[in-house]
Deep mutational scan, measured.
Amino acid sequence: QTVVIGDTTYHLNNPEAAQQIAKELAKKYGLKVVISGNTIKLK
């Protein structure tokens, strides 16, 4: 699972954790979560 935040890319072996982290950050910073395949992007 790949999480992309701005110009930073994180690789996590746990998809659920990756999605949870993405949701928390999106909520905290008012970002939009875009999931395509096994890549999660925060914009």
Rank of each mutant, 00 (worst) to 15 (best):
K27T: 08
I35G: 01
H11D: 06
L42R: 01
N13P: 14
E16D: 08
Y10K: 02
Q19W: 15
G37A: 04
T39H: 04
K32M: 13
I40S: 00
T39S: 06
N38F: 07
L42S: 01
I21W: 15
L42K: 00
T9H: 06
V3T: 03
K43V: 15
K41W: 15
L31M: 09
Q20K: 13
E24G: 06
V3N: 02
P15F: 14
L25G: 00
E16K: 10
L31N: 02
A18T: 04
V34Q: 07
T39D: 03
V33T: 02
L25P: 00
Y10I: 13
I40D: 00
A22Y: 06
A17C: 14
Q19S: 08
D7W: 15
Q1I: 15
E24W: 15
E24N: 11
T2V: 11
N14A: 06
I40N: 01
V34A: 04
K41V: 14
H11S: 06
P15T: 10
K32N: 08
K28D: 01
Q1Y: 15
K41Q: 12
I5V: 06
N14I: 10
A22L: 11
H11M: 09
Y29V: 02
T9D: 02
G37Y: 05
K41R: 13
G6F: 13
G30F: 06
L31E: 01
V3E: 02
T9S: 07
T39M: 09
I5R: 03
N38L: 07
T39A: 04
L31A: 04
G30V: 03
E16Q: 10
H11G: 03
N38H: 05
T9K: 08
K28H: 04
L12R: 03
L25A: 00
Q20I: 09
D7R: 14
V33D: 00
V3G: 02
V34Y: 12
A26N: 03
Q19D: 05
N13D: 13
N38C: 11
Y10L: 12
S36V: 13
I35P: 01
G30E: 02
V33A: 03
E16M: 09
Q19H: 11
Q19T: 09
G6H: 07
L12Q: 01
L12G: 02
K41G: 03
A18D: 01
Q1R: 12
L12I: 12
I35M: 07
N14R: 04
I40Y: 06
Y29R: 04
T2N: 08
D7Y: 15
L42H: 01
S36T: 10
A18H: 03
Q1E: 05
K23Q: 11
T2I: 13
V33L: 12
Q19V: 12
K28S: 03
Q20S: 08
H11P: 03
D7G: 13
A18K: 02
N14T: 13
S36Y: 10
V34M: 07
A17S: 08
T2E: 05
Y10S: 01
K28C: 14
V33K: 00
G6P: 04
L31Q: 02
L12N: 00
Q20H: 09
E24R: 14
D7P: 08
Y10M: 07
P15Y: 12
Y10V: 06
V34F: 12
D7E: 12
S36F: 12
K43E: 14
A22W: 09
V33F: 08
D7M: 14
P15K: 11
K27W: 07
A18W: 14
N14H: 07
L25C: 09
I40W: 04
V3F: 10
T9P: 04
E16H: 09
L31P: 01
P15W: 15
E16W: 13
K28Q: 05
Y29D: 01
Y29G: 01
A26E: 06
L31F: 11
D7N: 14
N38S: 07
E16A: 10
Y29I: 02
T8D: 04
Y29A: 02
L25D: 00
V33E: 01
P15R: 12
K43T: 14
G6W: 13
A26C: 14
T8P: 02
G37I: 05
Q19E: 09
I5Y: 07
I5P: 03
Q1A: 14
H11R: 06
H11T: 08
V34D: 05
A18V: 09
T9I: 12
T9V: 13
A17K: 10
N38R: 05
V4I: 12
I40A: 00
I40M: 03
I21L: 15
L12E: 01
V3D: 02
Q20W: 14
G6R: 06
S36M: 11
N13E: 11
V3A: 03
I5K: 03
A17G: 04
Y29T: 02
V34R: 03
G37W: 06
G37K: 04
N38P: 02
I5N: 03
N38T: 08
V34L: 07
Y10F: 11
A17P: 01
T9W: 09
T9M: 08
G30Y: 06
N14G: 08
G6E: 04
V3C: 13
Q20G: 04
N14D: 11
K27F: 08
A17M: 12
P15E: 08
Q20L: 12
T2W: 14
I5A: 02
I35A: 04
G30I: 03
L42A: 01
A18E: 01
N14W: 11
V4D: 03
I35Q: 05
K28A: 05
T8N: 08
L42T: 01
E16R: 11
T8W: 15
I21S: 01
Q19P: 02
N13I: 09
V4C: 15
L31S: 02
T9E: 05
Q19M: 15
I21Q: 02
E24Y: 15
V3M: 07
H11F: 13
E16F: 11
K28T: 04
K43C: 15
A26G: 03
A26K: 05
A18I: 12
K41M: 14
S36R: 06
N13H: 10
T2K: 12
L42C: 07
Y10Q: 01
K23V: 09
N38Q: 05
L42E: 01
T2S: 08
G37V: 04
